[in-house]
Design a protein around this nucleic acid. Structure first.
Length: 569
RNA sequence: GCGCCUAUAGCUCAAUUGGAUAGAGCAACGGACUUCUAAUCCGUAGGUUGCAGGUUCGAUUCCUGCUAGGCGUGCCA
C-alpha cells in the first residue's frame, strides 16, 4: 500500500503542477495531498479531498478543481490505475487495477511472518517502562492491562523498525517498602501467637502477607524475634521484596510478558546519582528551603504546586531517584522513553516532565501515557474496590484463574490480553467477569482465533483430498473475482498501515479492531464461497492462496498481541 | 477550589488524527448445519455524537463556556 500511495501521490502532484502550468489553477504551489479513507468500494481504493482544500485559494468550486486535476492524468500511462472518479463535494476517487490486488497477495506470500514490518524506526533505541508496580503485593488487573499494552507496544515498535525494550522499575526503597517490612513483622508476630497487634497506618492488610509470614515461621521458627525491631523489620522488608517481586515476575511470565531490564530504585539511590541531580537542580536555582524541607519549583514548569524533594527528616522523596532514573535512561542512549503510568500517577506527569526539562533533556524525549483504571464489574454489575491497602484487591492471577476454569489456561491468557488491549489507553475499562466467563464463546478473541483455525482447517481438508497449495507464481490470481475477495484483499493490504499507525500513535487497540474486521469479512466469505472445489482447480488454487494470506495476516496480528493462533478449536 | 481523563445506538466500545451515508460486538426479533468446523452465517431494528456557542468548504474530532461521572491534588510510591 505504501508504494502504491506514493505512486498515486506523485501522479496527483504532477497533475496539479501541470494544471498550474496550463494556467487553469490559480495557486502558487502544490500543497500536501491528503488521502482520506475509503469506506465503501464505490469510493475506490485511494481517495483525496485535495480539491476541497484548494477551493478557497483557487477561488473555484471544488468539483471544478477536481475535474481540472483529473484532466491532467493520463490513465493510459499508468497501468496501476483503473479509473478515476469525482464524487460527492469534489472527492477524487482512485480505483486501482486488479494487478495491485495481486501484488498484495504476492507481497504477503513473499514476506510471510515479516508482512507488516517496515523500517520506519530506522533502528532507533526506545525504552518502554510499564507496570513498575510497588513490590508490596500481587499485581492487580490494572497492572495486567498495563502489561498487555506495554508488551504489545514494544512488539509494534519493533515491527516498524525500532529497537525497543521492556523495562520494569522496582520501587524497592522508600517509605512503602518500610511499611511492607512493618506489616510482615506484625503478621509474623501474630503467627507466633502475639495478640493486640495491628497493621500500621499505610501498611498492607492483604491475606498474602499472613501466608508469607506463616512460611517464615515454618522455615525459621521464632528466631527472628531475637533481632532488634529495626533489624527485624529491615530483614522482613528485604525478604518480602524478594518474595513479592518473584511472585510478580511469575504472574507476568504466565501472562506472556517478560521484561528485558529490571531497574532498582535502591540501586539508583545507592549510585550517588540522586546527589548529582540535587546538585544540578541547586545550581540552576530550582530549589528552595521551606518548612524544614527542600522544594523544587515545579510551578516554573506549569505545575500548580511546588513539590518536596528532600523531606524535613533528610530523606529524599521518590521524585529524586525517579528524576535520577530518567536521567540514567537518557544516558543509556534511548532516543525516546515512553512511560506507561497507572491512573494514580497522573499528578506525577508534570513533575517528571519538569525534572526532565530541568536536567536539560529534550521536551519530547519523554512520552507519558496513562493507562486508565480497570473497573471490575461483578455479576450484579457492582464495581469493586481494588486498592492494595484495603486488602480486597483483585489480582491478575485471580483473573486468569477464573477465566481458565471455563476456557483453559491458554485461552484465559488470550482472552484477558485481548480485553485489556481492545480499549484505547486513556479510557476507563469495565471488565465484566460474568460476561467474560459465561459468554466466553462469544468473545471477539475467539471470533478471530476461529477464523485462523478455519484457514488451517481448509488446508488440512485439502491435503486429505490431495490438494496442496501451489507457489503463488503458478496460481492464476485472475480467478479471484468475487466482491468479497476484493474486499478481503483490500483489508489485507491495510495491515502494514494499521501496524505503523498503531505504533506511532502508541495505540495498541487498533490492532485487535483490525483483526476483528478482517475476521468479519473472512467468516461470511467462508460461508458463502467454497474454497476447495475439485471441479475447478484453477479457482481452488487461487482461493487457497487468498486463504493463506488471510491466515498469515491473522497470525502476524495475533502474534503482535501476544495471543495464540490456534490451528484448531 | 485547581488539574487530568471520560461522555457516541438500550449496554460495552470504534471511527485511519478535520472528510463523503457516524460503524462493530453484546442484548432483542426472524431465518440457515447431508457442505472446507454452526465458537459461523443471513436478515430486521436501533442516533439531535452530554448541552450551548465558535473556528471553515466540512467538526464525533480543534477552541471557549457549561453539565455529569472517574481519578489526582505540598514532605507515600
Amino acid at each position: 500500500m505504501d508504494a502504491i500511495k506514493t505512486e498515486v501521490y506523485n501522479i496527483l502532484e504532477n497533475a496539479i503542477r501541470a494544471a498550474i502550468m496550463a494556467g487553469e489553477l490559480s495557486i502558487t504551489e502544490v500543497p500536501d495531498i491528503p488521502f482520506s479513507p475509503t469506506k465503501t468500494p464505490e469510493h475506490g481504493d485511494i481517495a483525496t479531498p485535495i480539491a476541497l482544500g484548494l477551493a478557497k485559494q483557487a477561488r473555484m468550486a471544488p468539483r471544478k478543481i477536481a475535474e481540472i486535476i483529473v484532466k491532467h492524468i493520463d490513465l493510459e500511462a499508468h497501468p496501476t490505475l483503473h479509473k478515476i472518479d469525482i464524487a460527492g463535494a469534489g472527492f477524487i476517487n482512485v480505483h486501482l487495477s486488479n494487478e495491485w490486488l495481486y501484488d498484495t497477495l504476492r507481497t504477503i506470500a513473499a514476506m510471510q511472518s515479516r508482512y507488516g514490518t517496515s523500517d520506519k524506526g530506522a533502528g532507533k533505541h526506545l525504552q518502554i517502562e510499564f507496570v513498575s508496580a510497588n513490590p508490596t503485593g500481587p499485581l492487580n488487573i490494572v497492572s495486567g492491562r498495563a502489561a498487555a499494552v506495554g508488551d504489545t507496544l514494544v512488539n509494534l515498535l519493533n515491527t516498524i523498525g525500532y529497537k525497543a525494550i521492556r523495562e520494569f522499575y522496582v520501587n524497592d526503597a522508600g517509605g512503602q517498602v518500610e511499611r511492607l517490612g512493618e506489616s510482615i513483622d506484625v503478621r509474623y508476630r501474630q503467627a507466633l501467637g502475639e495478640e493486640n497487634l495491628e497493621i500500621p497506618e499505610g501498611g498492607y492488610q492483604g491475606e498474602y502477607l499472613r501466608e508469607f509470614a506463616a512460611t517464615i515461621v515454618e522455615t525459621e521458627g521464632d528466631k527472628c524475634l531475637q533481632l532488634e525491631m529495626d533489624e527485624r523489620i529491615a530483614y522482613f522488608r528485604d525478604k518480602g521484596i524478594d518474595h513479592i517481586l518473584a511472585q510478580q515476575k511469575a504472574s507476568l511470565e504466565r501472562f506472556g510478558v517478560s521484561f528485558d531490564v529490571w531497574s532498582s530504585e535502591k540501586a539508583i539511590r545507592d549510585s550517588g546519582k540522586p546527589e548529582e541531580i540535587i546538585e544540578r537542580f541547586r545550581e540552576k536555582q530550582y530549589l528552595y528551603e521551606a518548612e524544614g524541607a527542600t522544594w523544587f519549583r515545579t510551578t516554573d514548569f506549569g505545575d500548580d504546586k511546588d513539590c518536596v524533594v528532600i523531606r524535613s527528616n533528610g530523606e529524599y522523596t521518590y521524585f529524586v531517584p525517579d528524576a535520577a532514573y530518567h536521567r540514567d535512561k537518557f544516558d543509556r542512549g534511548f532516543t525516546t522513553a515512553i512511560d506507561l503510568f497507572g491512573p494514580d500517577h497522573q499528578g506525577h506527569i508534570t513533575r517528571l516532565k519538569s525534572f526532565v526539562k530541568a536536567l536539560g533533556m529534550p521536551d519530547d524525549w519523554l512520552e507519558i501515557s496513562i493507562i486508565q483504571q480497570v473497573n471490575l464489574v461483578d455479576a450484579e454489575g457492582k464495581r469493586q474496590d481494588m486498592s492494595k491497602r484495603s486488602g480486597q484487591f483483585y489480582t491478575l492471577d485471580t483473573l486468569i484463574d477464573e477465566l481458565a476454569e471455563t476456557v483453559g489456561e491458554q485461552f484465559a491468557v488470550d482472552v484477558a490480553r485481548y480485553f485489556f488491549l481492545m480499549r484505547a489507553n486513556n479510557t476507563h475499562l469495565d471488565f465484566n467477569m460474568e460476561l467474560a466467563i459465561t459468554h466466553a464463546t462469544e468473545n471477539p478473541v475467539f471470533y478471530i482465533q476461529y477464523a485462523h483455525a478455519r484457514c488451517c482447517s481448509i488446508f488440512e481438508q485439502g491435503s486429505e483430498q490431495g490438494i496442496t497449495p501451489k507457489p503463488i507464481e503458478a496460481v492464476s490470481l485472475k480467478q479471484l473475482t468475487e466482491p468479497m475477495e476484493y474486499e478481503l484483499i483490500r483489508k489485507l493490504a491495510e495491515f502494514p498501515a494499521v501496524v505503523l499507525l498503531s505504533a506511532e500513535a502508541r495505540e495498541a487497540h487498533r490492532v485487535p479492531h483490525y483483526l476483528h474486521e478482517l475476521s468479519g469479512i473472512f467468516h461470511p466469505y467462508y460461508n458463502q464461497h467454497r474454497v476447495l472445489d475439485p471441479s475447478d482447480m484453477e479457482k481452488t488454487h487461487a482461493r487457497l492462496t487468498l486463504v493463506q494470506s488471510v491466515q498469515t495476516v491473522l497470525r502476524n496480528g495475533l502474534t503482535l498481541l501476544g495471543i495464540s493462533a490456534p490451528v484448531s478449536m
